[in-house]
Design a protein around this nucleic acid. Structure first.
Lengths: 247, 247
DNA sequence: ACCCGCGTTTGATCCACGTCAACCTGCCGA
DNA sequence: TCGGCAGGTTGACGTGGATCAAACGCGGGT
């Protein structure tokens, strides 16, 4: 089948937003939907949006009307308060949803910023609610996604509340590793999309502490770091460090 | 209308679980429902359950099938990991929902423990999903509740990630105060239902640090504490301490 | 190829909170 | 009434991570 066999129609289909031909459908909202249900989901995922590195997808205080599924790229969400403090509340990658925080008050309660050039599908929330009233599977899956976010947050609370610096970083790296793996990338070698400062903010540490922890892991042969390039050499070692180290 | 005018039927109605005559209906799931919708919600809130102080409502790992609305009492939720660490992830009071964490994996991911004698309404989750497919208002309200939980968790992350001990305690007390107020109790004077250790776990501090912070607030005239009895004397002072104190 | 600037690394010092330990206090049961 | 004890307070001391400061090195622009 030579390239010339690609019709205009096919080219259009390939470009247009559609869950049914998105290779993330096993990762994203459509999980478990039947073909005909998937077609209906296509209808509501109307808008696709590209963002350059550093661009805001939404800002705290802005009106909420859509949630966003990440098609490609990498984001962070953060909260900031008047006195200048800010807390990175999460890093989101391909297939994950952004904007769930906005549902409660119809206003976004954090900022979402692209850490690399990215693309998202905007899903008007009222449409999603409408469709999930009709498609049980979609409804249930959406509830699971929200619940998973709550569970994840509890994990971060545990991390921030009880772990020491190196344990936090180990937990962070293992989590990233596992998520890259789930997306078909190497769990052992990846590029960090965020700065030491952003990692620090997420982990409740200063960038110097993060940097030192990286250096220490390297000394101990747990991983190889060079700037933002990380190669994990000893996953069990990291895991042990994360759970054990008490007293 | 003398007491004898209370019929058996009315007495029964007063006792039986029913959102439509629950005085929490403005606080709890039924918010915004029409009378006829409220009646339908009554049907699904089938079971009421009493718990004594210290009893578990559910445990981490247990199968999930219901969420719970607190009718009266006070709870904590916590997560614990093998090595003995535990993190209190929240304190819940009248009108709040418990169990949202269980939706994601059909298994509870934390423990819920009554901190005083309490009563909850069990809401079978599949029924709730069913009904919320029919009642838009209920669906939307439920989504808001879940989203609010996410936003709350972000607030705790901010607290754990960026605040110093006294700021954390101030934030905690102001939050409690505001929630008591919303329930018609005094925002200035209340009894803590939890120990210093539990507060510490929630705030990522040791009980000694919590105790010292209390003493310091007392010295500074911000509040009067005696054991678990707290009287807030200077709300603006606490608020200032919470947001300002940088450098 | 060079320079400039930001993100990162590394070192020296400081301090908030943790740790350890003693003591206090209100409560409950005998 | 008393004794025991769990929870809370207070003090002395240690330490992990923050802070301050300096130097490094990579990437982008000219």
């Amino acid at each position: 089948m030579p390239p010339t066999a690609v019709t205009a129609r096919q080219a259009f289909d390939a470009i247009k937003t559609a869950c049914s031909n998105c290779n993330l459908r096993e990762l994203c909202l459509p999980i478990g939907l039947e073909d005909d249900e998937l077609k209906r989901l296509d209808e509501l995922v109307s808008t696709r949006k590209r963002l350059k590195r550093g661009e805001y997808l939404y800002r705290s205080g802005q009106g909420f009307e859509s949630i966003y599924a990440i098609r490609s790229g990498f984001f962070k969400t953060d909260v900031l308060i008047e006195d200048g403090r800010d807390q990175v509340t999460g890093f989101q990658m391909t297939g994950e949803l952004l904007g769930l925080d906005g549902i409660s008050n119809e206003v976004h309660s954090c900022n979402a910023i692209a850490l690399e050039d990215s693309e998202v599908c905007a899903i008007p929330f009222s449409h999603l609610e409408g469709l999930s009233r009709e498609i049980h599977t979609l409804q249930h899956h959406f509830h699971k996604v929200m619940s998973r976010e709550i569970v994840r947050d509890h994990g971060v609370m545990m991390l921030l509340g009880t772990m020491r610096a190196e344990e936090r970083l180990a937990a962070f790296l293992l989590n990233l590793s596992q998520r890259f793996k789930a997306r078909g990338y190497s769990p052992a070698e990846f590029n960090l999309r965020m700065s030491r400062d952003e990692i620090g903010s997420y982990l409740g540490l200063k960038l110097e502490t993060v940097s030192r922890a990286f250096s220490r892991f390297q000394e101990e042969g747990l991983l190889a770091v060079h700037q933002r390039k990380v190669r994990i050499l000893d996953t069990p070692g990291l895991r042990k460090l994360m759970t054990h180290q008490r007293g």
